[in-house]
């Protein structure tokens, strides 16, 4: 990145000697997006910090219990730093969090960092598998749907995507479990096996959650791919290809797919970020010990430190993913960076 900055500013003074070096639009775009990400992360930290202070009752009540005397409470207040002004508390908390100290769970006394570290790999595995599932069915189905426009396949695919978008992921997950336990009674529908324990069983237990999470994401991809392909079919180069003797299939494979894929990649990237919210639901349906399940348990048990850390981690993942997508977009579609 720094290379392109110096390269551009080195080239410019020759043409416009009196002006300050202007970074090329792409660098400006990346800087703007990075700044935006930082602002969002700051807001996220304020939200997570604020959760504790918005809650009725102070952490001292929770720790000291109902029968504590004033001296204990005063000591706890000083120990926790609750007597200091809010900005000081915020900075202390932020410094701790950034150094990886998320506090301890009130419920089981374990460090929150450990709780999250144990569960993060499972959530990431689910997210990656679900993304792959959605791409594996959404893109081909969308392309084929456009090729067979108005035929049975098209109608079926469109109906599937409509249902995929209208049904909540958790209800679809429950329906899948039901279907599989009736049709394939030997299939392990619920219950998660860690990859380190038994890779084969782990992969088997991830099949249904990945499908459940991948269907709605794939539905969006399928719809975008279809409309993008239909738009490409209207273009001159396809007509030329057909006029010069290419078959419909050849024209699609050689010229259609690649041109249609660029805008869809944008959507696919944005969809990845959407997994963050939906994985919370799927983890609860399939009893996968991930961050999402931890979040819900923490909120139900009023385990504030854990809830705070979970919201922070999930939110930060979302922001980082969005930023990563922003960085990738100009590579896929050069017009985006140029704007």
């Amino acid at each position: 990145m720094s290379q392109s900055v110096t390269g551009a500013s080195g080239a410019q003074p020759r043409q416009r000697a009196l002006r300050l070096p202007v970074p090329p639009p792409l660098v400006g775009f990346i800087i703007r997006r990075a700044l935006r990400g930082v602002i969002v992360l700051f807001a996220l930290s304020l939200l997570a910090f604020g959760l504790v202070h918005l809650l009725p009752g102070s952490p001292v009540d929770t720790l000291a219990g109902p029968y504590s005397d004033a001296a204990t409470r005063a000591r706890l207040t000083t120990d926790l730093g609750l007597d200091k002004p809010l900005p000081v508390q915020y900075v202390t908390w932020l410094a701790n969090t950034l150094s990886g100290d998320f506090g301890t769970s009130v419920f089981n006394g374990l460090p929150v960092r450990e709780l999250i570290g144990d569960r993060l790999p499972n959530t990431l595995q689910l997210a990656v598998f679900a993304t792959l599932t959605s791409i594996a069915w959404g893109i081909p189905a969308g392309a084929l749907s456009a090729m067979k426009r108005g035929r049975l396949f098209d109608a079926t695919a469109r109906a599937t995507t409509f249902v995929g978008l209208a049904i909540p992921v958790f209800a679809f997950g429950v329906a899948l479990v039901l279907l599989f336990s009736i049709a394939f009674p030997s299939w392990p529908t619920l219950g998660f096996v860690p990859f380190s324990q038994d890779p084969a069983q782990n992969l088997q237990s991830m099949v249904l959650p990945s499908i459940a999470l991948g269907l709605p994401l794939g539905s969006t991809l399928c719809r975008f791919m279809r409309s993008s392909m239909l738009e490409v079919y209207e273009q001159d180069f396809i007509r030329t290809a057909l006029a010069t003797g290419s078959t419909h299939l050849q024209a699609t494979m050689r010229h259609g797919l690649r041109n249609a894929a660029a805008p869809v990649a944008t959507v696919a990237g944005l969809q990845m970020a959407g997994i963050v919210g939906n994985s919370i639901l799927i983890e609860n349906v399939f009893a996968i010990p991930g961050i999402g399940q931890l979040t819900v348990t923490a909120i139900t048990q009023h385990d504030v430190a854990v809830a705070q850390a979970c919201i922070l981690v999930l939110g930060a993942t979302y922001v980082v993913l969005n930023f990563a997508v922003d960085l990738l977009l100009p590579l896929i579609d050069p017009q985006i960076g140029a704007k």
């Binding site: 935006r36 969002v40 809650l55 919210g277 919370i280 919201i311």
Partner: peptide, 19 residues
């Protein structure tokens, strides 16, 4: 508005029902 849109909506809802 961009700031609110930068958070996953389910996460916002969860934060709200925590409090």
């Amino acid at each position: 508005i961009d700031l609110v849109l930068s958070f996953p909506s389910l996460l916002l809802a969860l934060s709200a029902v925590t409090v």
